[in-house]
Design a protein around this nucleic acid. Structure first.
Lengths: 343, 343
DNA sequence: TTGAAAGCGATACCAC
DNA sequence: GTGGTATCGCTTTCAA
């Protein structure tokens, strides 16, 4: 049933068209559409019929203008190409839909400038609130938030002391547990491939958790055993492992599975076996981590739940503007596979 | 700078507030905001200043009501948890933003019912058009499209003969090339782990491409060498390989990298080597395909470009409602690694 | 139970 | 150049 390319898009029918066809006032149509006030059964039938005949779809923009709420939420992410991001999105969109909200997406490519720009685009479009997957918090952010008071929840970073409800995972605890697990296998020279420390969650907290675990065992933190890398690049993990190699760690904790994979590649290419010659552990539990050729021991986070909880938290914040901001933690899980052994 | 939780969200300033503060009519404010008509420099300054003082952000919903365009696009996807989906999204959102559009996302969990429901939600919110990542085309879809004439472009499926502009990859050609590559290594017993044939693109076309290549070499298509599986499940690939095993193919073409990984796992667990004992090839070029432990030979698609092209096509369709629908192909690439060898 | 009318925040046309 | 006003599609009093 090919559409006629010639026929231009017909103007969509409005509430008035429905009213005319049903022979009622358009206020009545509004009532049946929204179930807001009782309407006589015969009248309602006529209206419903007219709606069906005309394929009437209410204009929620016009409704929003009147009600001052758009039933739209915004999601601001520094990157959306990865599967972690995609899962957060999935959880968030699902929860939003369940509550009758639609989700607008903005990718900021991790640029502060674009982040604020996105926030403004969302504001222009009158979203009722936004989820903000932030890596950094700058004075510009503070100013913006101060000037435009929109309900916002932070995802993956803890800004609750700044008045921004936050949904996140316990990076410090997870890193500590990971390190303890490695130490428990008897390792003493445990290196870390860490992330950018200005990234408070993945960068700073995971590193601090690692250090805390070492100290708790009475071990010193050897700065030569900690190198920095780009969490979202496998190659960066490879390079980091290369730098670490001359210090001969018996185990390495990488701040992400991607980094761990890179490190693993470095070792495999040199004919070393894992965990025979060196143990490797990561974070994220990517799909591939379970592959028989990898069997990566790692920490799993429930990204879908993270997104869903962020949405629910945002909706609460929208509905209860007075509430004080708090931080909510989504639990993680240590997944034991075969990439960590004894030294 | 903590936000006061006590202070309720202040009503956002409107164009009238700006006009009052600047001492001009609100029509003039509209002119400076949109650069639509010349405005005296001193007046413009005053308006701009008032905008800044009040933190005025124009209400694009109200604007859309008047102009009959929302500058919002919709994206309907059967699933958004995978990295392929995420990349499509990234490309699409980027292109949309570049053209001044925002993107609304709806995940349908591959249910026709939710698909139509999503389409309606988008329509209610007055999107100017939508990208539809469809797996199936049912009579319900046809009816819907017929009743609600919104600009739509199909992604990943070819519906251009139905009047729906389509952006896709050449699945038939890709599968054919993949199969030819395998045959070129000397294989004669090439199995295929195919996808659901009602999925026209991934299911049907890839299988047909595989068969075409065999026939072109004068080989018969052995139905026992073709099994069906769920493209997005590694386990399903594992199970499919198990079923295939007793027919002892020397090579297997899987309809996705995920399936290929599952098949690989099956073989590795039995102590077989790849490509020593059996060759395996996939589609998608997932991140992991390049991992040293995998080195999967596969077909790569540019998902980001696919998303971007879909957006550009949609915007064209919005701007030129008369144009006839066509299909646009995003090229693929065969990536040779080490998982395919000689029998 | 139903209708008339005001108003949400903006654009655009018509005067001046 | 600038101001006044009708209008977009809808919700929501206020009367009837």
């Amino acid at each position: 049933m090919p559409r006629e390319p010639s026929k231009p898009r017909a103007k969509a029918p409005t509430i008035k068209d429905v009213a005319r066809l049903a022979g009622v006032s358009f206020a009545t149509v509004s009532r049946v559409v929204n179930d807001s006030k009782p309407v006589n059964e015969p009248t309602r039938e006529r209206v419903l019929h007219a709606i069906d005949v005309l394929n009437y779809v209410p204009n929620s923009l016009a409704r929003g203008l009147q009600t001052q709420e758009s039933r739209m939420l915004g999601m601001i992410m520094p990157e959306i190409g990865s599967s972690g991001a995609a899962q957060i999105l999935q959880g968030a969109e699902d929860a939003a839909r369940a509550a009758g909200f639609a989700m607008m997406l903005m990718n900021t490519a991790a640029a502060v400038r674009r982040e604020l720009e996105s926030l403004s685009m969302l504001l222009e479009r009158q979203v009722d609130g936004a989820i903000w997957v932030a890596a950094r918090f700058t004075p510009d952010h503070a100013t913006w938030l101060e000037r435009h008071r929109v309900p916002i929840v932070a995802l993956a970073q803890d800004f609750h002391t700044l008045g921004v409800p936050s949904v996140l995972v316990d990076n410090h605890g997870a890193a500590r547990e990971a390190t303890e697990f490695i130490l428990g296998r008897g390792h003493r020279r445990v290196a870390m491939i860490a992330a950018d420390p200005t990234d408070l969650a993945v960068g700073r907290d995971r590193r601090l958790g690692y250090e805390a675990a070492l100290r708790a065992q009475g071990l010193e933190v050897d700065v030569e055993l900690v190198v920095e890398a780009d969490v979202s690049s496998q190659q960066s993990g490879y390079d980091a492992m290369a730098r670490l190699d001359r210090h001969a760690p018996t185990a390495v904790l990488a701040a992400s599975d991607l980094l761990a994979m890179g490190a693993m590649r470095y070792q495999l290419e040199r004919g070393r076996s894992i965990p025979g010659d060196v143990s490797i552990m990561g974070f994220d539990d990517l799909d591939v981590a379970s592959h028989p050729a990898m069997r990566l021991t790692t920490i799993a986070f429930d990204f879908v739940e993270l997104g869903a909880l962020a949405t629910r938290t945002l909706i609460e914040a929208i509905e209860h503007p007075g509430a004080t901001a708090e931080a909510r933690i989504v639990p993680h899980r240590l997944i034991v596979r075969d990439s960590v052994g004894s030294p």
